[in-house]
Every structure is written in C-alpha cells, then in structure tokens.
Amino acid sequence: MAEYLRNPLCQVWAFLSAMTLASWWVSQGGFEFNVNVLVTVTVLLVSALKVHLVVRYFMEVNVAPRWLKRTMNAWLIVLLALLLGFYFFSL
C-alpha cells in the first residue's frame, strides 16, 4: 500500500480527483445559473491543468520526444485561448 502512496501515478490521480471536486465546489458555491466570469475562468484553467497532467503523466508525454510535447502543449494552449477568447468576446 505504501508503495502506491509513493507512486507518482497515484499522486497525480489524487491531485486530479481533488481538483475535480474543487472545481465542482467552485461552480456550485452558492451561485445561481447566471453568467459568472470568475467561475468560468477558474473552471477552464483548472480543467486545462488537469488535461495537462493527464497528458504528461498518464500518457507519458513527459518522456516523449520534443515534437510530441510541443504538439500537445500547442493544442492545449490554442484551445484554451480560443475558448476563453470566445467567452469574453460574447460578454
């Protein structure tokens, strides 16, 4: 059991689960269903971080060649920028 506690995969999983619950809590935190910039930005940033961790540790891109790392990073950054961009544009 202690071995699993030291396993980076398990540590990443614990962090991801905690982030999931945290972003849920932020989204539920007593707000009505109204436009809320703070919630949206927090939720999207936390999700991007989660995706980055899944790519890096579960998909093992941290030991992959540079082209793959860069492609995955570029995808995530461009996606996040477009999502936030369209969100703010429509406010």
Partner: peptide, 14 residues
C-alpha cells in the same frame, strides 16, 4: 481527458 473538457464546458462553466 476529453471527458475532463466536456465536464467543464457542459456542467461547470457559467
């Protein structure tokens, strides 16, 4: 990871 994004976009964002 696709579900992580779907979850944020459909359930959580406001």
């Amino acid at each position: 990871l696709l579900w992580l994004l779907l979850f944020a976009l459909f359930y959580l964002m406001r």
